[in-house]
Amino acid sequence: MTLCAPTLLLLLLSQSTRASRCLPIPPGMALCQGLGYNIMRMPNLLGHESPGEAVQQSGSWLPLLARDCHPYARIFLCSLFAPVCLERIISPCRSLCESVQDSCAPIMNCYGYSWPRILHCDQFPKDHLMCISPVTHMSNSTSNTHSAVPQASCTDCELEETTSVKVLLDLLCKSDFAVKVRLAQSNSSSSAIAKFSLGSRLDVLKHGPLLGGEMKGRLALWLERDATCVGNLNRHHPQGATFLLTGTVMGDRLLVNKAFSWSRHPRQLNQAARKWKHHRCRG
């Protein structure tokens, strides 16, 4: 069920006449895992009647969260998709909605999406003790994950034009990780969002704080969570291509900051990869 433009008041009133129940957050709801609670109330604040419906609808927000547009975006969305099961439903405050919208709506616009009417901030209450504000205490694991997140940008997932081997080596020094990987579109996907798979060979130039064997698993998670970014890289290579990916390790995730097409710039990239084996970073 999809609601066009519900108001929070009408939803809360309607829920008083329906059977409200507390259920475990499904393992498949990746959006709302690891937030410090595991029981949610159904129906939720978006009018979803079942956990399965909430899981299906919440998955479309994962690419946006992968862009790290706001440190509380996950808290805001999960207060709607999977409200914590207390004596009464606690909604997000209007200020939290406005803060998340100000940071995330421009990133959504990068990919052709506007802030949905269902999340208009006027429907949420002004700040008070019984709503979730931007300064609401989060679990230590959540705050640590977001404490050093760089500001998202529309160009985070654009293919870069190489300049020189020296510039590439400097980038490798500044990045947590660097990996040469082939991405191929999966023909088995029936989703509206294209699915991609890793090629059989993975050349890790730099693994940073990760253990040597962790890179493939982290890249698989990136493919799953950041489908919009991956699709952007493959826009001109629908059958797949080989890329140099560099970026930052954020908790259990990889944030890809720069990407280069190996087929477009084979000479510079191959030279940089060879020199990197013996390169010493300054500082």
Rank of each mutant, 00 (worst) to 15 (best):
T162V: 15
R117Q: 13
S79P: 08
T155K: 15
I107Q: 05
L168R: 09
A73M: 13
L169F: 09
L65E: 01
I75E: 13
T155C: 06
A148L: 12
L86R: 07
Q123H: 08
N44H: 09
L35C: 01
S91R: 02
R117M: 07
T155S: 15
E160H: 11
L168Q: 14
N38E: 13
Q123G: 07
S103C: 09
C104W: 05
R41W: 00
C69P: 07
E160N: 12
P92D: 08
S60W: 05
M42R: 04
T155E: 13
C154V: 03
T145K: 14
C97D: 08
G112I: 06
C69G: 06
N44M: 04
S99M: 08
Q56K: 10
L45F: 03
I89Q: 14
E158F: 09
G52M: 04
L46S: 04
D156Q: 15
P116Y: 09
I75M: 11
A82V: 09
D170M: 10
L77H: 03
V84F: 05
P150N: 01
V165Y: 06
C110L: 05
L171W: 10
D122W: 09
K166M: 08
P63K: 03
P83V: 01
Y111T: 00
A73D: 00
H120I: 06
I107C: 06
E98Y: 02
F81R: 01
D102L: 06
G47P: 06
I90L: 07
G52S: 11
N38M: 04
S153V: 00
M40H: 13
E53S: 15
W61E: 01
L65Q: 04
L96E: 02
L119P: 10
W61M: 09
Y72E: 10
L80V: 00
S164V: 12
S153H: 12
P125E: 05
A105C: 05
G36F: 02
I132R: 04
E49W: 05
R117S: 14
Y72L: 13
F81N: 04
Q56H: 09
D102C: 03
I75K: 03
K166Q: 14
T136Q: 09
H120K: 10
S79I: 01
C78Q: 03
V55C: 00
S141F: 02
Q151T: 14
P83L: 06
Q101P: 00
E161K: 15
D122L: 08
H128N: 14
P92E: 05
Y111L: 08
C154P: 10
P134D: 07
Q57F: 08
Y111A: 06
H146D: 02
N109R: 15
A66V: 02
E53D: 13
W115R: 12
A152D: 09
M130L: 13
N144R: 14
M42S: 07
P71W: 02
M138Q: 15
P125W: 05
L169I: 08
I132L: 15
S60Y: 07
A82M: 08
D68N: 11
R67F: 01
W61S: 03
R94N: 12
P63T: 01
Q101F: 03
A66H: 11
N144F: 07
F76H: 05
E161L: 12
L45S: 02
Q101R: 15
S147H: 12
P83I: 06
E87T: 04
Q101K: 15
V165T: 13
L129A: 14
A148M: 06
F81T: 03
A66W: 07
L64E: 00
L45N: 10
P125Y: 05
D122V: 02
S103H: 11
